[in-house]
């Protein structure tokens, strides 16, 4: 489907609250129709960035351009952006259909047109049968879907999602996450999605921006972010990583006696290699140098914790193989020779 989106450019955004630098030079370019997730721990500045894009907060310096137009000083109600909030934000005194049609009413659309559009949007999120209900009569997941329909009804140039799934239970969260992605691909609106949940970010986004202390640490496709973290923070924040002592020389790290190429940005001598659990293989071997400490069943795959050369290493292996192992058993450990990031200890 052809994209309806526009480009979004954040240029050197700063937001200071007294001595606190909530944003410290954020620069980001979004392509038309792209979904970018901003990921980071609490207080990293991701929500501040989104609020500045929405016009609900003001940057200390820097600019926001949407479709080539500078919106930095444009008030929120003139920005033509749809937003879904973390807290339930439906208007309690309006029915579902009136909530969805609210933005269209403000734009002076005729009653018949806005009702038709509102029903279309409710159909898109699968809630047409609840059109005449009030928000209090809906579950949390339904309320967020209505909020999404309301944000999309105005055909916004940019869709902003501020941790829209945080208040929902795990099952609904996964369902709605997939639904958001389906709808976003269908309407093609450029979307900025803020979340602290890495699984959520990796699952829905075209690109994920990892933020820390008001700065963008890395912006990359989810697979790149996962397999080739650019900084120690990204390596440790995204996914689970083993921290295994390593020595580096000539672009090669020696980890548990194995030579493994290193990623750009790695330490140049000794350090700690960040190795994913799925890159670690464990095999029963009476002459092996490692000992199984624990086996943890996780469904299709299991986690096996082994001790090798005084370091605890977690391996992710198929449950069939994992359940054949038991604590105290001698095993041999090998590491997938894909490049790893080695950081200073």
């Amino acid at each position: 489907m052809e994209s309806n989106g526009v480009t979004v450019e954040l240029d050197d955004l700063h937001r200071h609250y007294g001595e606190v630098r909530a944003l410290d030079g954020l620069t980001l370019q979004m392509q038309p129709g792209e979904l970018i997730a901003l990921l980071g721990p609490s207080g990293c500045g991701k929500t501040t960035a989104l609020r500045i894009v929405a016009g609900l907060d003001t940057a200390t310096s820097g600019s926001v351009r949407v479709g080539g137009r500078d919106l930095t000083r444009v008030p929120a109600n003139k920005r033509d952006m749809g937003m879904v909030f973390q807290a339930y934000s439906l208007f309690p005194h309006l029915t579902v259909v009136d909530n969805v049609a609210f933005g269209l009413k403000l734009r002076g659309r005729a009653t018949a047109e806005r009702r038709r559009r509102a029903h279309e949007m409710l159909e898109l999120v699968g809630l047409e049968q609840h059109a005449t209900r009030y928000p209090r009569q809906l579950s949390g997941g339904q309320q967020q879907r209505v909020a999404l329909a309301r944000a999309l009804a105005i055909e916004p140039s940019v869709l902003l999602l501020d941790e829209p799934l945080s208040a929902l239970d795990a099952k609904v969260r996964v369902q709605l996450r997939d639904e958001i992605r389906r709808i976003q691909l269908e309407v093609g609106t450029t979307t900025l999605f803020v979340t602290h949940d890495q699984e959520e970010a990796l699952a829905v986004a075209d690109r994920v921006g990892v933020m820390s202390d008001g700065r963008l640490e890395q912006l990359a496709a989810p697979s790149v972010l996962y397999s080739a973290p650019a900084t120690p923070f990204v390596g440790s924040f995204v996914g689970l990583s083993n921290r295994i002592p390593a020595t580096v020389s000539d672009g090669t790290a020696t980890v548990l006696g194995q030579a493994i190429p290193v990623l750009p940005g790695s330490a140049e001598s000794a350090g700690v290699a960040l190795v994913r659990p799925e890159a670690v293989s464990v095999a029963a071997d009476p002459a092996g140098s490692a000992t199984v400490v624990a086996v943890s069943f996780r469904g299709a795959v299991s986690q096996v914790t082994v001790e090798v050369e005084g370091t605890l290493v977690i391996a992710q292996v198929g449950s069939g193989a994992a359940l054949a192992l038991e604590a105290g058993q001698r095993v041999s450990v090998s590491i997938d020779p894909a490049p790893v990031l080695v950081v200073a200890d």
Binding site: A54, G55, L56, P75, A76, N77, K78, R79, D80, M81, G82, M83, F85, A87, Y88, S89, L90, F91, F102, G103, L106, R107, A147, R150, A151, I154, L160
Partner: peptide, 10 residues
């Protein structure tokens, strides 16, 4: 939140 939602809708 209500005010911000309304503002974002125009």
């Amino acid at each position: 939140t209500l005010a911000e939602a309304a503002r974002s809708l125009g």
